[in-house]
Amino acid sequence: MKRTVIQDRALIRLISATYHKPPALRGLVDSDAEMEVLARIEGLTSARQRAEEGHSLSLDNRELSWQRRNNGLTVYGNSHINAAFTYARTGGSRFNTEQRGAWYCVWSVETALAEVAFHRTRELEYIGIFNNTARYVEMHADFIGEFPDITDEPDHPCLHPDPAIGYLAGQKLATELQHAGERGLIYPSVRQPGGRCFVVFDPSAIQNVRPGASWDLTWAGSRDYVVNGV
């Protein structure tokens, strides 16, 4: 496995616009004090907030990204980083188990769209209805460091296109890399030929998170989808 040094800005992670909106509960209250009470109640079932308070069995809250304040200024992106590591799909993803998430990002928006479209299409297959519009927001972040890189190993078992095969191998590899102290892994996109992806295991490796463009993906009766910039 080779190693690659990166000093790259604005790698792209796409998140559902649902998770990029102002707090849904804000319209129910008349003051910040009342909002704080509701936020505490909501936090009782929030995996992210519980992890930040030290109640996660899979994450040490000292690993997470914390709000740094300077004269009342809150650094953007901390909650997005923490959410990436505290929420995971059932069964996990290619390089993380369902106990602990990871930050997945890419170098090009075309690759990002292909990756999220695959997962959304698979969800629509489960219910057998291909009529849906989903909006995604770009989250940009910067990275500096040396990381293991398998972009020259297209036949690696973890890159098998069938999640039932590739995910098991990828989770095993990710666990081994994390035990060895690695903070992430560069790998070729399985869903976009020529695309390059980066999975980050360590929240502290993610720098300068900020929002980017928004995209609508629309399915109208079939697996094929249309992409529109918003």
Rank of each mutant, 00 (worst) to 15 (best):
Q7K: 13
Q7C: 10
R9N: 15
R9C: 15
R9G: 15
R9P: 13
A10C: 12
L11Y: 13
L11V: 15
I12Y: 10
L14N: 11
L14V: 09
L14Q: 11
I15T: 14
I15R: 13
I15C: 14
S16F: 07
A17W: 06
Y19G: 07
Y19V: 11
H20C: 11
K21H: 10
K21L: 15
K21P: 11
P22K: 07
P22H: 06
P23E: 12
L25E: 11
R26W: 11
R26E: 12
G27Y: 03
G27L: 05
L28K: 12
V29G: 05
D30G: 14
D30F: 11
D30K: 14
S31R: 01
D32L: 09
D32E: 14
D32K: 08
A33Y: 01
A33N: 04
A33R: 02
A33Q: 06
E34R: 09
E34Q: 14
E34A: 15
M35W: 01
M35G: 05
E36R: 12
V37L: 08
V37G: 01
V37Y: 04
L38S: 03
L38M: 07
L38V: 07
L38W: 03
L38R: 06
A39C: 05
A39P: 04
A39T: 07
R40Y: 04
I41W: 02
E42A: 10
E42K: 04
E42N: 05
G43W: 00
G43V: 00
L44P: 03
T45N: 05
T45E: 04
T45C: 08
S46Y: 00
S46K: 00
A47F: 05
A47H: 00
R48V: 06
Q49Y: 04
R50E: 00
R50V: 02
R50C: 02
R50T: 02
E52T: 02
E52N: 01
E52I: 01
E52V: 00
E53C: 05
G54R: 02
G54V: 01
G54W: 02
H55F: 02
H55R: 02
H55L: 04
H55S: 02
H55N: 00
S56I: 03
S56D: 04
L57D: 14
S58T: 09
S58E: 09
S58C: 11
S58H: 08
S58M: 08
S58N: 08
N61H: 10
N61A: 09
N61I: 13
N61Y: 06
E63M: 13
E63T: 13
E63K: 05
L64N: 12
L64C: 14
S65G: 09
S65K: 07
S65P: 06
S65I: 06
S65H: 10
W66Q: 03
W66V: 01
Q67W: 06
Q67H: 12
Q67L: 11
R68S: 04
R68I: 00
R68F: 00
R69A: 08
R69D: 07
N70T: 02
N71A: 13
G72K: 05
G72Y: 04
L73D: 09
L73G: 07
L73I: 15
T74R: 12
T74H: 12
V75Y: 07
Y76L: 10
G77F: 00
N78D: 15
N78H: 13
N78W: 08
S79K: 03
S79W: 07
S79R: 09
S79F: 07
S79N: 06
H80Y: 12
H80C: 12
I81G: 12
